[in-house]
Amino acid sequence: MIWFDFGGVLSPPLDDLFDSYHARTGITPRQLKTALAAVGAELDVEPLAPIELALLTEEEWGRSMVRVLEEANPGIDLSRARFERFGEQWFEGVRANPVMVSAARHAKEHGYRVGILSNNVVEWEPYWRAIVAPVGEVDCIVDSCRIGVRKPDPEIFRRAEKEAGVPAEECVLVDDLAENCTAARRVGWRAVQFRNSAQAVRDLAGLIGLPALV
């Protein structure tokens, strides 16, 4: 069973999404990341955990983001940002990573089960599902906001195993974050850290013996 992360693997790199959001709203990646961290810190969790664990609704979280951005950046122009519907604006125009889509389809064609294991947000589901639609039907989706556990918590991997009915030794994670790959390996999974598309496809093929993607 090959589990693909959504953000940064099946989607474009996260830095590209931050840059695109900056171009649309004028909010710099640094300003946005600092605000994400501040809102998370208020709940004593990681930056995106408030919405990836559904501790806050998107609207509640959006209000908090506006507040901390204005506090940290007096006079900041937020007129182009729609934090109450952040996901809709964040994913506007985003297309799936075509190489990783091909890799997922290639794996399915060669008899591997494919799943998506993602830290994600309840209100963002229509947008990210539309983005990954080119992958086609997958065997299992495990989403942090639906189960109340997020990567790299070891429990999310156990929940994924149970949901898919697959033992740890048959699970492979493809994820762009080193800490998620490390956590997966600690519970008996194998993992490929995505750094770029060519490297990830090559490493995955080498790890599981998948024929080369032409």
Rank of each mutant, 00 (worst) to 15 (best):
W3L: 04
W3C: 04
V9H: 12
L14T: 15
D15I: 09
F18R: 04
G26L: 10
R30I: 13
Q31T: 06
V39R: 00
D44L: 11
E58A: 05
E59G: 01
W61G: 01
R63D: 14
S64T: 04
R67T: 11
R67E: 13
R67V: 02
A72D: 12
G75M: 05
D77T: 08
L78F: 14
Q89C: 04
Q89I: 06
F91V: 13
E92A: 14
E92W: 07
G93A: 06
V99N: 14
V99Q: 15
A103E: 13
A104H: 06
R105P: 00
H106A: 12
A107F: 09
H110W: 08
R113E: 11
N119D: 15
V122Q: 00
Y127K: 08
R129I: 13
A133D: 13
E137F: 06
I141K: 00
S144H: 05
P154S: 12
E155P: 07
F157H: 13
F157N: 14
E163V: 10
A164E: 08
A164Q: 04
D176K: 01
D176L: 00
L177R: 15
A178G: 12
A178V: 14
T182Q: 07
R185S: 11
R185M: 11
S197V: 00
A200D: 09
A205K: 03
P211C: 14
A212F: 06
